[in-house]
């Protein structure tokens, strides 16, 4: 009984360790090594390993949403768009709104905006970027990603 339990634990520890290392190294190290996309174990482990703040650049991009009423655009407070408050930090500062920029998400996000801000005629979803936060901190480039009518 004891031997069976120890054997089961041993196998679990070995499998878990191998999986942990594989999933950690797969995206950034093993894929480039074998020059192809290796399979990922679904339902566990992040897609690209433990890459917190691994690359912080001079450029900074974020999303802006403008509500248009009678032809006049008004910048919407992102906290009014995504009202969910996280405990101990502000998700908006984590740049969560940038996930709305993908054109394939336009239809769903537009209907979301129309429901939440029914007083506006249309919306503009814009990608804004500081090209260099150190040298030119006032310069922001803006590009319309899509428009909600």
């Amino acid at each position: 009984m004891l031997l069976r339990r120890n054997r089961a634990i041993t196998w679990f520890v070995i499998c878990w360790t191998l999986l942990f290392q594989y999933e950690t190294l797969r995206a950034s190290y093993l894929n480039p090594l074998v020059k192809r996309e290796l399979p990922k174990l679904r339902l566990l482990f992040p897609p690209a390993g433990w890459i917190m703040f691994f690359n912080v650049d001079k450029a900074y991009g974020f999303a802006e949403v403008y509500g248009i009423r009678d032809g006049t655009p008004t910048l919407l407070d992102p906290h009014d768009i995504l009202e969910t408050k996280a405990v101990g930090y502000d998700n908006i500062h984590r740049n969560v709104l940038i996930g709305t920029l993908y054109p394939q998400r336009a239809r769903q996000f537009c209907s979301f905006l129309k429901r939440k801000f029914s007083g506006y005629d249309a919306f503009l979803v814009i990608y804004a970027q500081y090209p260099d936060i150190v040298e030119t901190p006032e310069r922001i480039l803006r590009r319309v990603m899509y428009r909600c009518e």
Partner: peptide, 8 residues
């Protein structure tokens, strides 16, 4: 990851 694999 901060010094390899695209880390800067």
């Amino acid at each position: 990851s901060k010094i390899t694999a695209g880390g800067n």
